[in-house]
């Protein structure tokens, strides 16, 4: 999914990703245990944003949408950016999300899904040799993530706290 739009705001839903260039903002709303991955290349001012919900594709059934998993969505977003002219070696990343929204007292392995999403995201970035510049992950906060494609700045919006700039 790619667009070379000017002066717009693009909304990325759950298990989706988007690549854009120019005077554009890419937004994903309400990240909980999901992780938002913003990729950016300064030379061409190309940006990509992926909203993943699960860590590795190999561990889950129903693999028809690669946008769902950290290990498949990140390479796809990266490749799309390179395809549209971004220099692979200059692409950097900022990530947000991976929260634990509920405080369960039980012993369910899936409950730490936020942390697992963050770990899988970092591994996927490492495999592609993408430098992680900043992150706002973990805790128990819902987050909205906005990538300004013109500047590479990432803004995190939460409820009841001031804006955070990455």
């Amino acid at each position: 999914m790619a667009a070379l739009l000017e002066g717009t705001e693009i909304k990325v839903g759950i298990a989706q990703w988007w690549v854009a260039r120019g005077n554009t903002r890419i937004v994903t709303l309400g990240l909980g245990s999901c992780v938002g991955i913003a990729l950016w290349e300064a030379g061409t001012r190309t940006g990509g944003l992926a909203h993943i919900m699960l860590p590795e594709s190999a561990n889950f059934p129903d693999r028809n949408n690669p946008g769902k998993f950290a290990d498949t969505a990140i390479p796809l977003t990266f490749q799309e950016m390179v395809k549209t002219g971004a220099r692979a070696g200059a692409i950097v990343a900022k990530i947000a999300g991976g929260a634990q929204m509920f405080n369960f007292t039980g012993k369910n392995g899936m409950l730490n899904i936020g942390q697992r999403n963050v770990e899988a995201t970092k591994q996927a970035l490492e495999r592609l040799k993408i430098k992680l510049l900043a992150e706002h992950t973990g805790g128990n906060l819902g987050r909205t993530m906005i990538l300004d494609v013109a500047t590479g700045q990432v803004t995190i919006r939460t409820l009841g706290h001031p804006l955070i700039y990455l």
Binding site: I14, A15, L29, G30, L31, G32, S33, C34, M53, L54, F60, P61, D62, N65, K68, A99, Q100, M101, F102, N103, F104, T105, N108, M110, L111, I113, G114, N140, L141, G142, R143, T144, T158, L159
Partner: peptide, 24 residues
């Protein structure tokens, strides 16, 4: 029960994913 008080999108998707909903 467990409680979360936050953004609807964050809370709902997290609850669904952690209860084993991986489909779209």
């Amino acid at each position: 029960p467990a409680l979360a008080l936050d953004m609807l999108g964050a809370v709902l998707t997290t609850a669904l994913i952690s209860s084993g909903y991986f489909s779209e």
